[in-house]
Nucleic acid binder design. Structure first.
Length: 526
RNA sequence: GGGCCGUUAGCUCAGUAGGUUAGAGCACCUGCCUUUUAAGCAGGGGGUCCUGGGUUCGAGUCCCAGACGGCUCACCA
């Protein structure tokens, strides 16, 4: 059958079948075919009716025209059963040679798995009770020249799932479910904010200055203006300009781009919700976020208890709140025991040595912070210079972050690492900021927005100095933003929520690539 | 970027100590079968064992280099 040795046998067979279908006088890629239902519509309309109820319907009400992709063919001699899919659901088609329009049987003989057809017929139930459509005629709609993956095992090659998501979606219902849930999350969020008087906006993805976060940007160039541009790392500074401009409640759901490493929690482009509420502070944002997450879970999944591997995450509000310092103190002993255990199992007994005792006071002392950081496993502590805030955040990351399975707001961030945040009243070293951790991932980050243009200018200058010292993720001075603040921004709280990570939580996906339809992959050679 | 692991038929996977013609299930092809459903029965075809070197009488198997991917560490959200 396969004449050309360069073309795989099954593809050659399908090309031959396509030629034979054309020889029957059938259009092989018709422009139009009018359905009365999609498969899901057939199921919705008829699945509640038993055999007798279907039988009792007037003939006209049982007639329909349904298109779909063939995902199973069971040949029975002069009858054939097809499973027809609209991508979501399947319905069985019963094809009986002598019940078919003349000429259609010859077409049916040429059908392959994956082909698209349109069936006209009437619904009934088979002997085994399965809802089916008895075909009166079948039209050919499009050919699948390539064979589908194994009908039982589907596609398990993760590389191919990512590179050829269309194939994954055809054969993997769980993949489809993941992306349906993701879509529902985004729709729910829009509905949630729209219903609370927020205005959805779109701000620049290409910026002359990539601000609003600490990350390395992607560069690009506008030819006509001969202008270097950066893909945004955050929409933050533009959204706050809009608060200045008189939108007291704004939000944006859109892509950010960060030129950093790729991991199970990081994709170079990722989707972020950012929302700003004037006349609110960080505390209000936390309350709103709890409400949003719990309501979304309840609406979309029917529960706030999310399976997460062998564990369960409860999105029931309120979420735990604990300061960064307390989170360190609470977790460091456990964390030390764990790392000791690892060492012992790996290398045999080791002496414990003189560990620095970690106390609230020690976490305020630069010298001790450095020692604690080093002992917690933070590498090259020197690079943080004399920044107590950076050291504290590093220690938190090393000691506490990976233990935050249940939703936890970490509050009281060091002001040094929060240059866009207001500080707490009476405590200039502490930002009025929080980050929300769920499933050991940072899912949200928010704070009471700094709206004093002079203080903001000073913090930008400090960031520029940091950059001068080699921190290439420190922020740049955004003059126009400072000028915007000088027009007066009301007290405002803002927050960013990682949509991809939220989708991971809702779908029990442990890699961000499983919730991004087309994750970035290195191109395949040849 | 570092470490560990993977890559064999269209798909999912086996492949013993390095030893003849590299196997299985599904898919594919031929035949039978008019209510089956992972349909069934009988027969058949299909391989750059990721790529390139090397060791060896002999490599899917051992060694080196590379490609791509997964996990993980580092950085970040």
């Amino acid at each position: 059958m396969a004449e050309d040795p360069d073309v795989p046998e099954q593809i050659a067979n399908r090309r031959d079948a396509r030629t034979r279908i054309a020889a029957l006088g059938r259009p092989i890629y018709p422009n139009r075919w009018d359905p009365t239902h999609l498969v899901s519509g057939v199921v919705a309309r008829f699945s509640t009716l038993d055999a007798a109820a279907l039988e009792a319907l007037p003939e006209a009400e049982r007639l329909l025209r349904v298109p779909g992709r063939i995902l199973a063919i069971r040949k029975m001699g002069k009858a054939v059963f097809l499973d027809l899919s609209d991508g979501a659901l399947r319905v069985q088609i019963y094809v009986k040679k002598d019940a078919l329009r003349p000429g259609d049987w010859e077409l049916v003989e040429q059908l392959d798995l994956g082909d698209h057809v349109g069936v006209a017929g009437s619904t009934f139930r088979t002997r085994t009770g399965e809802l089916s459509v008895k075909a009166a005629s079948i039209d050919f709609l499009a050919k699948a020249l390539r064979p589908l993956p194994d009908k039982w095992h589907g596609l398990t090659d993760v590389e191919r799932k990512y590179r050829q998501r269309y194939v994954d979606l055809i054969v993997s219902p769980e993949t489809r479910r993941t992306f349906e849930i993701r879509a529902k999350i985004v729709a729910f969020i829009r509905n949630f904010f729209d219903g609370r008087g927020f205005v959805e906006v779109e701000t620049p993805m290409m910026q002359t200055l990539a601000g609003g976060a600490a990350a390395r940007p992607f560069r690009t160039h506008h030819n006509a203006l001969d202008l270097d541009l950066f893909l945004r790392i955050a929409p933050e500074l533009y959204l706050k300009r809009l608060v200045v401009g008189g939108f007291p409640k704004v939000y944006e759901i859109n892509r950010n781009f960060r030129n950093e490493g790729i991991s199970t929690q990081h994709n170079p482009e990722f989707t972020m919700l950012e929302f700003y509420t004037a006349y609110a502070d960080a505390r209000d944002q936390m309350a709103l976020t709890e409400e949003l997450f719990a309501a979304a879970a309840l609406e979309i999944l029917g529960t706030t208890e999310l399976p997460w591997g062998d564990e369960t995450i409860s999105l029931k509000a309120p979420f735990k709140r604990i300061s960064m310092v307390d989170a360190i103190l609470e977790n460091i002993s456990v964390s030390e025991e764990e790392s000791e255990k690892e060492k012992i199992s790996a290398n045999g007994p080791t002496q414990r040595g003189g560990r620095t005792s970690v106390t609230r006071e020690a976490l305020g002392d630069l010298h001790l912070l450095r020692k604690i950081a080093a002992e917690a496993g933070v590498e090259s502590v020197e690079r943080f210079g004399d920044s107590k805030g950076k050291l504290l955040a590093e220690i938190f990351g090393a000691v506490a972050e990976r233990r935050l399975l249940q939703p936890t707001y970490i509050i009281d961030y060091p002001a040094e690492i929060s240059p866009l945040s207001k500080t707490k009243p009476g405590d200039p070293s502490t930002a009025d900021r929080f980050e929300l951790f769920i499933g050991r991932m940072e899912v949200a980050n928010g704070f009471s927005e700094l709206n004093d243009p002079d203080e903001q200018a000073e913090k930008f200058r400090a960031q520029v100095a940091e950059r001068g010292k080699g921190d290439d993720e420190a922020m740049l001075y955004d003059e126009d933003y400072v000028e915007a603040l000088a027009y007066g921004m009301p007290p405002t709280a803002g927050e960013g929520v990682g949509i991809d990570r939220l989708a991971m939580l809702f779908t029990n996906s442990h890699s961000i690539r499983d919730v991004i339809l087309f994750p970035l992959m290195r191109p395949k050679k040849d």
